[in-house]
Design a protein around this nucleic acid. Sequence first.
DNA 1: CCTATATGTGCACGATTTTGCATGTTATAG
DNA 2: CTATAACATGCAAAATCGTGCACATATAGG
Lengths: 257, 257
Amino acid sequence: MDAELPHARRDSIAARLLNGQPVVATALASEFGVSEDAIRRDLRALAAEGRCRRVYGGALPLSPALEPMAARIREGSDRKGGLARAAATVVKAGEMLFLDSGSTNLTLVEFLPEDADLTVVTNSVEIAGAILRRQDLRLIVVGGLADPFVGGCVDAAALQTVARMRFDHAFLGACSVSAEFGIGAFHFADATFKRAILDASRHTVVLATTDKLTEQAPHQAAALSRVDLIVLEAATTAEQRSLLERAGCRLLITPND
Amino acid sequence: MDAELPHARRDSIAARLLNGQPVVATALASEFGVSEDAIRRDLRALAAEGRCRRVYGGALPLSPALEPMAARIREGSDRKGGLARAAATVVKAGEMLFLDSGSTNLTLVEFLPEDADLTVVTNSVEIAGAILRRQDLRLIVVGGLADPFVGGCVDAAALQTVARMRFDHAFLGACSVSAEFGIGAFHFADATFKRAILDASRHTVVLATTDKLTEQAPHQAAALSRVDLIVLEAATTAEQRSLLERAGCRLLITPND
DNA sequence: CCTATATGTGCACGATTTTGCATGTTATAG
DNA sequence: CTATAACATGCAAAATCGTGCACATATAGG
């Protein structure tokens, strides 16, 4: 890994951080064969670009990817409620739905119409629990080896299971959303699984909190053209919206309350 | 968890607190390999930021969501906790376990040995959630159509899945336990599923609170001879025990504390 | 060819953060 | 009330940081 180009070294460090790995300044210095000063300058630059969090001794990834699902559940469900309420309006009675893992989709459960004879399929353990608590929903659990970071099953077994299903609406969890990169995921297996969901569903909906639009995720799950509808908060800029629309997406803006 | 970075250590502690887990200063010190002074400084800093409540011996989360559960574990005074604590002793490092649905088995999750390289398979949504919260356990979810009464999957798909597995220990949930009728279940599909579990496991353990011995369930899952070990409370009578023993079961009596 | 500029690097210096230990104090259990 | 464990505080050592500066390299233009 002896890169002559300074820029390559910085990219390499950035890639690790994007993957959720913390980095130690001294270790990087010896690994790349440069002084700690050079590494420190890299880390400072990356932090200035908002690509990591500078801490004493090195740097930490700022994306919540490295914190397991359980820790992410409790935060910020207020704003997500608006998104979920708006997204739930696309659901019709008798449909078969898929809810991908993600805290936003967890919020969606309580806004699904009541007694509408819905069948809900999910690979998320947490979401399955929420659905089970609502006794008017039929629940199908997608099993497999559970990924603690994703909070559900995205392995080959799960992929095979959903490949034999056909959803009316799939609510995809997105770690990042952008016009160029499309729907991003923090983990490779998760991205692959999301593609399988896309293939298995007639309509795909993505709930995107505003922070998802600036987030950077290393793996592309799908291009935006594959997504039928993106639900956005009212706090998004007109530029952000037009970019997504030009990428071929219908938008649903949450009414401010 | 080699946290070279001081700030990463603080984040890790903060994540646990956010999860509702209380933390003990001395335990954290040995876990992270630093002196208690460093931990105390971390906890003081977190408390100053309003991210936890400082108490003698450690710190408590502000949100008391999971606190009652954690308190129960410490005291060990809960009846099911005693059963679970005793049952967990049969588990050895590296094993593959099955946890059947049931509130007693849910309690068992907290008592499984830590960092023992365990793989836990379950068909219960609730238990899967508890396992996922423990980051040292590998979780395999048995999927399928979830039965709202059972709280998990006991359909044909689930049955097929476990038929291709081999467990070192299966912890069977029992709706009733008796010498003549064996292990009883309230639902037909659940009883069928339990038999599949029996076929797939080398050792079968049943945790039976005393009320299960007088309960009557309509479906027989299996005869007692198929069960290797029954864990009982100390409050059982000598007659109850001898009846079960004569049916061919090894008994483990919870020590009273 | 020479020079100007930009970029990256390493080193030196003082400032900051973190740590472990010693001190005395306070809380909890019996 | 007493013993023990946990606590806060001060302090010195170590690690890390930020900044200024000198040097090297590359590119572009005169």
